[in-house]
Amino acid sequence: MVNTLQWVFGALIIVTCFLSALYSFRSRRTNDGLQRGLYASKMNISMGLMLIFIAIIQMFLFSGSSLRVVIGALFFLLGLFNLFAGMRNRSHFTRLMK
């Protein structure tokens, strides 16, 4: 069971890392300001999910040392902040595009 969860979260981390890099590249290459903001917000959402998945692996799937739990909690909080900021910015830029 634990081995399966490690594979699933590992795959999710790889996918969100790829999406984060893709949206970062797209936001830097576009000339339109609205598209740039939309791609940057999608990058923040992907990065936030990636950090949350890393935190879940750190805190729950390995033996619990205090340092591992603290680092996992920091990643989790940073991931939540990125996720919230990305969702807020995405709603703002989608409203501007309409």
Rank of each mutant, 00 (worst) to 15 (best):
A55Q: 02
N89H: 01
G33T: 07
S63N: 13
G79H: 00
S66A: 15
R26A: 14
I56P: 02
L34W: 05
V69C: 12
L19N: 08
L67Y: 11
C17M: 08
K42D: 13
Y23N: 14
F84P: 00
A55N: 02
H92E: 07
F93W: 04
K98T: 13
A21S: 08
R26T: 04
L67F: 13
V69K: 15
S66R: 14
Q35N: 14
S66P: 14
Q58S: 14
L96Y: 03
D32C: 09
F62I: 11
L61P: 01
S65K: 10
L74N: 11
I71P: 05
V69I: 15
G10C: 06
G64R: 13
F76K: 00
A21H: 01
S24V: 02
I52G: 01
G86H: 00
Y39A: 15
M1T: 04
M1K: 06
Y39V: 11
S63L: 09
S66W: 10
L77N: 03
F9V: 10
L22K: 08
Q35I: 11
M47C: 13
I14F: 07
S24E: 04
F53W: 05
F25C: 07
R95M: 07
F9L: 15
A11I: 10
I71F: 10
K42A: 15
F81P: 00
F60P: 01
I14C: 05
L34S: 12
V2I: 12
S65P: 06
L78Q: 09
N44Y: 07
I57H: 05
Q58G: 08
R88V: 03
G33Q: 10
L5G: 05
I56A: 12
N44D: 07
L12D: 04
G79E: 01
V69Y: 12
F75M: 08
M87T: 07
W7T: 15
F60H: 09
G48E: 01
N3W: 06
G64M: 13
T16A: 09
K42V: 11
F93E: 02
F81N: 02
D32G: 11
G64C: 10
S91N: 09
T16Q: 07
I57K: 08
I56M: 10
R90I: 04
M87V: 05
I57W: 05
N44M: 14
A40R: 11
A73M: 13
V15L: 11
R29C: 05
L19D: 04
I13W: 01
M43R: 13
S65W: 07
I54C: 09
G10D: 04
L74M: 13
M47H: 08
F18L: 10
H92L: 09
L67V: 14
A85Q: 03
L49H: 04
I52E: 02
N89C: 00
L5E: 08
F81W: 03
L5D: 06
N82S: 11
T94W: 01
L34V: 13
L12S: 09
F62W: 09
Q35V: 12
G86D: 00
L67A: 15
R28V: 05
S24W: 01
N31A: 14
V70N: 15
F81R: 04
L78F: 10
Q6V: 07
F25G: 06
T94I: 10
A21M: 08
A21Y: 03
F76D: 00
S27W: 03
R68S: 15
S27F: 07
S65R: 12
G79V: 00
N3M: 10
I57R: 10
F62Y: 15
V69S: 15
A11Y: 04
S20G: 12
S41L: 04
C17W: 02
F53I: 05
A55E: 03
R29W: 02
